[in-house]
Every structure is written in structure tokens, then in C-alpha cells.
């Protein structure tokens, strides 16, 4: 299913923004909020996983129903999950298309990567030290 991805802040994302390797941040940043009817069309229940594929790549998210989101759109809080999909092209403005990226969704049984795994996929090295949380 092709949808328009909107990204932005949520209070939970903000609350855990300084604990990006925590379970709570992981849960919030990897949530894909969508209209319940779109969920039916896609055949996913709340909490089930989808593979999202955008211009920059692909990432696994979990689905949450949200009445406020219009059909054909999804909302993912700003963060490393959404950014795994957004292209770095700025069309001469310095600003990527954070709120107007088209992505494809398909149900999946795959696991959701942690933030550290996403960074590793970008070429980094996971820090596993004592201050991780």
C-alpha cells in the first residue's frame, strides 16, 4: 500500500528523546500511526509489523490506529526509523522532505531493529557500554 508519510513530534518521543536506546523510545519512534480503515485494507492489526520502503531504504515498524490521521497518510514520529526512509535531497532548501515522502507498506513478521542496529546499518559500531540506557 502506498501512503504519504508525515513525521513530527509526540509527547512520548519528546519524553524519551534523551534515552534513545530505551525500550520506551524504541516503541514510540518505530510506531506507524494510520487510519483504521487503511489498516483493514492493509490487513494488519494494532501492534503488528509492517515493512516500510521509501526512497532511502526500508525499515520495519509496528502499526497503531489513529483516527486523526487522514486516509492515505501515516504518521511516524521524527527519529531514526522515519529517517531510514527519507531521502537526503533538499531541492536547494537545506530541508529534506520530512513531511512529504511517499512510502510503501506491506505486512511482515520480521522484527523491529533497535536504534543501535539502525545506526550499525548506516555503517556505525554499536556502543554497548554501561551507560547505554
Amino acid at each position: 500500500m502506498r501512503v504519504l508519510m508525515n513525521t513530527g513530534r509526540s509527547i512520548r518521543q519528546g519524553s524519551y528523546v534523551e534515552r534513545k536506546n530505551s525500550q520506551a523510545y524504541y516503541d514510540e519512534a518505530s510506531a506507524c500511526r494510520m487510519h483504521p480503515v487503511d489498516m483493514m485494507d492493509l490487513g494488519v492489526e494494532p501492534g503488528e509489523h509492517v515493512r516500510a520502503t521509501g526512497p532511502a531504504g526500508s525499515v520495519v515498524l509496528h502499526v497503531l490506529p489513529a483516527d486523526g490521521v487522514q486516509r492515505g497518510e501515516v504518521f511516524v514520529t521524527l527519529g531514526p526509523y522515519a529517517n531510514h526512509l527519507v531521502d537526503a535531497e533538499t531541492r536547494g532548501t537545506g530541508m529534506p522532505d520530512f513531511k512529504s515522502t511517499s512510502i510503501d507498506l506491506e505486512p511482515t513478521g520480521e522484527d523491529i531493529a533497535t536504534v543501535a542496529m539502525l545506526m550499525e546499518a548506516c555503517g556505525g559500531v554499536q556502543y554497548r557500554g554501561r551507560d547505554l540506557e
Partner: peptide
Amino acid sequence: GAHLPRACAAHLAKIPTIQLDPHVNATTH
């Protein structure tokens, strides 16, 4: 690491990146 598109994070991983920050975050990795 968390707030720029993936391609930017990938370049940060490629070059020496120094971070001044109180917390372990996405850029740490």
C-alpha cells in the same frame, strides 16, 4: 544520527565524528 536522513548518518559513520553530549544517543553509535 537520529534526526537527519539515513544518507547523512551513513556519511557521519564514514568520517571521524566527535560528539559533545551528556547522553548516549543515536549518534554515539
